[in-house]
Amino acid sequence: MSTDSSPKAAKRRPDRAALVIAVALIAVAAVIFWDVSRLGAIASYARIGPTTVPNLVAGGLLVLGIWTAIEAWRGDFPEREHQEMGPVLWIVGGLAAQMLLLKPLGFSIATGVLFAMTAAGFGKRKLWLTLPIGIAFSFVVWVIFTRLLQLHLPSGPLEALFF
């Protein structure tokens, strides 16, 4: 029995992370197919109904999941670079902060915090500059959605100050 320690032999092992992604894609496709099956034939006289697009999305996810599983099993994915956790934590922290601050402080401030923390994750650590810029951009978005499009976004003290 010989042992092959060449780089090709190491490359042939299944990529476990990609297999997990493939399983997740297939699971999401299955959930979408199940949910669409509960809709039934609402508009049976038309070829395109409320189930058409979800079925296409689920089918696409299923194909991608199978394709990812095959490529993972073959070990055909390129070797991944080392992941820096600092930027990821800044962005995930920004998302968590937005979710926690959205109701008490409103859309503009919560999304401004997300903007500033995402900028910090990308290397712009001047929070004293990125936070007001993010709040200003978010306030403009809030005005467009709430006043022009008549869609509801959570308001807070900043929005109440102007409207």
Rank of each mutant, 00 (worst) to 15 (best):
L89S: 15
T51Y: 02
V63S: 07
S2C: 01
A69M: 07
G59A: 10
M99G: 14
E81D: 13
E79R: 15
K103R: 15
A9D: 08
P154G: 08
G156M: 06
G65V: 00
V63L: 12
L25N: 05
A10K: 15
L127Q: 08
V92F: 13
S37G: 14
Q83H: 09
A69Q: 03
W34D: 11
F33Y: 12
A46R: 14
T130R: 09
L64P: 00
K8F: 10
G65M: 06
L101C: 07
G156S: 06
T130P: 00
A136K: 05
W128N: 02
K126L: 04
A30D: 05
F139K: 10
F77N: 11
I133Y: 03
H82W: 08
V88F: 15
W34P: 00
L158R: 01
A97G: 06
I91V: 15
V36Q: 12
W128I: 09
G86K: 13
S108L: 02
L100C: 06
W90C: 09
L100A: 15
L151K: 15
F163M: 06
G59D: 02
Q98H: 09
L61F: 09
G112Y: 06
A30G: 14
F122C: 13
T3G: 12
F139A: 10
A96N: 01
L129S: 05
R38K: 15
F77A: 12
S44C: 07
R16T: 07
W142D: 01
M117P: 00
W67M: 09
D35M: 13
L131V: 04
S44W: 05
G86C: 00
L61R: 11
M99T: 13
F162E: 01
V113S: 04
W142M: 02
T111G: 04
A27C: 05
R13C: 00
S6A: 10
A18M: 14
T130D: 03
A30H: 03
M85I: 13
K124N: 04
F107L: 07
S37D: 15
W128G: 01
W73M: 10
G121C: 05
G75H: 02
G40Y: 02
M1S: 12
G121L: 02
L39Q: 12
S108I: 01
Q150T: 14
A160K: 15
I26W: 08
L19D: 04
L62N: 03
L25E: 11
L161T: 02
G121K: 06
I133L: 15
A119F: 04
R125S: 05
P7R: 11
A97P: 00
I109P: 00
L114K: 06
V28L: 12
A69E: 03
K8H: 13
V53A: 15
I42Y: 08
L161W: 14
S6L: 04
I144F: 10
L105Y: 03
V23K: 11
Q83D: 03
M1E: 09
S5C: 02
I70K: 11
V143H: 09
L19T: 04
P7M: 09
E84W: 01
I21K: 06
E159N: 11
R125T: 10
S108M: 01
L148P: 00
Y45R: 14
L95D: 03
V36L: 09
R47Q: 10
L89T: 13
A18G: 15
L62Y: 04
R125Q: 12
A30R: 09
L19M: 15
V141A: 14
L158K: 01
R47L: 10
E79K: 14
P87F: 07
I135M: 14
A41V: 07
I109Y: 02
M117C: 11
E71C: 01
A58W: 02
A24K: 08
